[in-house]
Design a protein around this nucleic acid. Sequence first.
DNA 1: TCCCGCCCATAACCGCAGATTATTACCTCA
DNA 2: TGAGGTAATAATCTGCGGTTATGGGCGGGA
Lengths: 307, 307
Amino acid sequence: MGGMPPDFESLRLLTLVAELGSLGQAAERMRISQPAASKRLAMLERRLGLTLVDRSSRGSALTTEGKAVCQWSDRVLSEVESLMAGAAALRADQDDDLRLASSMTLAEHFVPRWIGALRHRSPDLRVSLKVTNSEQAAELAARGQVGIGFIEAPTVPPGLCSRQVGADRLVVVVAPGHPWLRRRRPVEPAELARTPLIVREPGSGTRETLERILADVDVEPARPLVVLDSNAAMRAAVAAGVGPAVLSVITVREELAEGRVREVPLAGVNLHRRLRAVWPRGRRPTGAAELLLGIASHRLPDIDTAA
Amino acid sequence: MGGMPPDFESLRLLTLVAELGSLGQAAERMRISQPAASKRLAMLERRLGLTLVDRSSRGSALTTEGKAVCQWSDRVLSEVESLMAGAAALRADQDDDLRLASSMTLAEHFVPRWIGALRHRSPDLRVSLKVTNSEQAAELAARGQVGIGFIEAPTVPPGLCSRQVGADRLVVVVAPGHPWLRRRRPVEPAELARTPLIVREPGSGTRETLERILADVDVEPARPLVVLDSNAAMRAAVAAGVGPAVLSVITVREELAEGRVREVPLAGVNLHRRLRAVWPRGRRPTGAAELLLGIASHRLPDIDTAA
DNA sequence: TCCCGCCCATAACCGCAGATTATTACCTCA
DNA sequence: TGAGGTAATAATCTGCGGTTATGGGCGGGA
């Protein structure tokens, strides 16, 4: 009964009913007939095993359970919207108003949302996105092939202006039960260097930052344990106990919070880094680029600055 | 071409192809036939207008675009998983191993994820969830009708033990263009009290905290502009320019970041508050409750502690 | 009071998405 | 060269999800 996931349209319908207070109006908004909406909603309730809506003869209101599910649906739909915005941007055309390039970490977590917000304001703006690594993104920006590049390199490549759009921190992570977790003292950089790690491919911002750290210690770095080309693959590998990795805290936030992977302190190295938007020096962003830059450089509000 | 959203199964399929490197194996994992998977994937590509997978005769690998879409799909599916976990928990039975009650803010953003993580570890644990407001949740916990309650009240009700599971901050928010944004000085509490606001229903943690703030000033508070019973509705109302509201920063995080609503500083009041798990004094959580408490009290790692 | 309007549910029908099995084509490797 | 893996195509069937048509409750206005 609880196995099959609902479909997006049904979730959308639920939120519309919440907003409009009427199944019929929600149906109209979705461009389907009222009976179709009625059946869909009934189906959704059957699938979830919950009564979501109180139908009365003068409208429909969500039940308590309905409100909860509706909130969760909002989150789902928001992610779907980002996915759609991202996918639309990947489908690059020649005559786009704004071309972007982004490193993977930024593309995974931020860029689609920004694009979505931008399209929200200027609906018929054509935005394209190229997902590569920080190195390539910087180069594309430098050559003017994209209006803005998003990179996570520790230093701004020459010839580029930049603006910070976020912050990040690298963390050493291992699976729960790893011996490093039982130690009293932080891991030393030299020890990290001697250990075979799960790493990203060369050219990625994460890899580069890691190498910069390990280059400071006078140790021949061990060969990588595995080389993977996506943050998701690395997360999975670490959680599965393949070995330690150095990852952006953004990409393992949830895994850390749920205890699927654990952080190991690293001694004496600053692992913070800035996430930046970059563009060719002198050619100041205008129009769509400027707008996007504005959206991107809103800092996410701090939730827990002490208490 | 880009209008219709894809369905969950297709997104799941994509992530499985990424993980297993083979369409056939992914099909097997999803309990469908190989041709079905082939068609689904083709359909997904057609809908998004992108080539997601490189098919070779010895397996399939994601293209660059495929990897990006796959990451975004992961985010979508993660939210869906939370929704399913939440819905399952709402469908309360008598003989549940762990019963929970939660305020709306916590239920909206945290609890389903925690439940999901818990089910991940102990798959056949039965968890139920009652979504109410902080007041009710505390009372249910006090009476022992639930194992743990999640509340956001500024003070721990008597007779309860608590543990912090997060932090929050209230913010005064208005629509872009509101006159308060053009002022030089922060809004004074007395002024806030005199202004008709969009508020939550009595009993909600947000409402209570707000009243505590306004009670300190020697002004008869204005009547509410509207009373709404969900954070989502309030977000929408504020963004639509109905009026100012005082909301948890957690619930308006994205709207703030995208500029759909704006924060107005408030003078001289500490708006931070703790999010707490509570249980009856003396009856220490054990078993499933203890496990969940462990999951919940992992702090989300700070992303941007300076730089 | 009565009727009309708005709400929703049900019934009967239908088309197509999406599943199935069976088959074909391709590449690699022993 | 044949075996074992890959994925795509063909032919078929089921049922989800859409439609229109209809009926029943409740409330407000004439």
